[in-house]
Design a protein around this nucleic acid. Structure first.
Lengths: 184, 184
DNA sequence: TTTGGAACTTACTTATTAGTAAGTATATTT
DNA sequence: AAATATACTTACTAATAAGTAAGTTCCAAA
């Protein structure tokens, strides 16, 4: 795979997560990479292609992370912690996650990007639910509500805490994440 | 105050909450209202003016709702329920709330809009915290963590559940809201 | 009855956007 | 050596964006 292609995806993702989907342009990317506008269109004919590829890359990255955790024998607690770390990093970088960024522009997205975004959300929620079920069985976690609701609440909590924290000057984000995952 | 002005603010708010700030144009508004593009600029010279006015109107509406609840002698439980109803309505209308919509475009907003948005978030969080403290004292609520964190978690939960639910076809949103506010 | 202001429209400008067609340089294969 | 493919650039187009200056209509006050 082309290095430029990868750089475009990476930059595109960062732009979506900091400025939003409808606020970034091919010019933003080409200027940053020192290439011409048309070069970006060479790799991704339309913004729709780029958007879809960015979401697909995110899915792939998530799945690699999960595989990686399995091969390292991470337990459920360690897996949840690793998941939370993604959001801690996003918070440090003052970026949202892909789901939160694209949610507000959802109805302006094309069908393929919407489908991939839905798929990504489903994959994360399914993974979270499974982790919660197994972790509860192993007595690593204690919670009352059903695992699906809890998975949804954890994901929502992560997504929105990045957003709401943009409105606040100082906050103990790490502590907040801990509170979210340990809610009963 | 002018009827057209109010209609512009209302329509602008709906556009932000359904398409996002950077996806809506003055043309969207003028076409819908059957007026010309320049007429919108007559009331709001710049998009920045409109954005700020929309957020300010939201703050006002929230404060009126709070006053209204006080004058009707609502207890803390009833007040929280009324607050949650705002989000139930948004969910039915497939719209996000202003905070969630503008969070992803935050860094593309002008200073005045950002300031008002921060102010709105602070006002809601302060109100929520106060309600939680008083409600706990009155034994209407039971929770362990500190009221500020809980306020933040409730707000985050509401904001993001609207977003994440866009990625899901069917879901018991009302039940989810109940779970969020009753988390310990 | 005129004057002034409120609420617009007409008719623009300038900037930026996504997207394209055709050309070029360089490396790789045949 | 010639043909082909890759990775672009040059030079555009068409659409849409925000924003503006000047004019018009209409009503209400002086």
């Amino acid at each position: 795979m082309s290095v430029t292609r990868e750089k475009i995806i990476e930059l595109g993702e960062n732009l979506i997560r900091s400025k939003g989907y409808n606020a970034f342009s091919y010019q933003d990317i080409s200027t940053e990479l020192g290439i011409k506008n048309a070069a970006v269109h060479y790799y991704f004919p339309t913004k729709e292609n780029l958007g879809t590829s960015i979401v697909k890359t995110n899915i792939q990255r998530f799945e690699e992370m999960v595989e990686n955790m399995h091969s390292h024998g991470f337990n459920e607690r360690q897996q949840i912690d690793t998941f939370v770390k993604i959001y801690l990093k996003s918070h440090r970088e003052q970026k949202l996650c892909i789901i939160g960024s694209l949610a507000s522009d959802f109805y302006t997205l094309n069908e393929t990007t919407k489908t991939e975004l839905k798929r990504m959300t489903e994959i994360i929620l399914k993974w979270l639910t499974d982790i919660l079920v197994t972790g509860k069985e192993k007595k690593l976690f204690v919670f009352d509500e059903d695992p699906q609701s809890k998975a949804f609440i954890i994901l929502s909590g992560m997504v929105a805490s990045l957003q709401v924290s943009r409105m606040m000057d100082k906050m103990d984000y790490k502590n907040l994440c801990q509170t979210i995952i340990s809610l009963k």
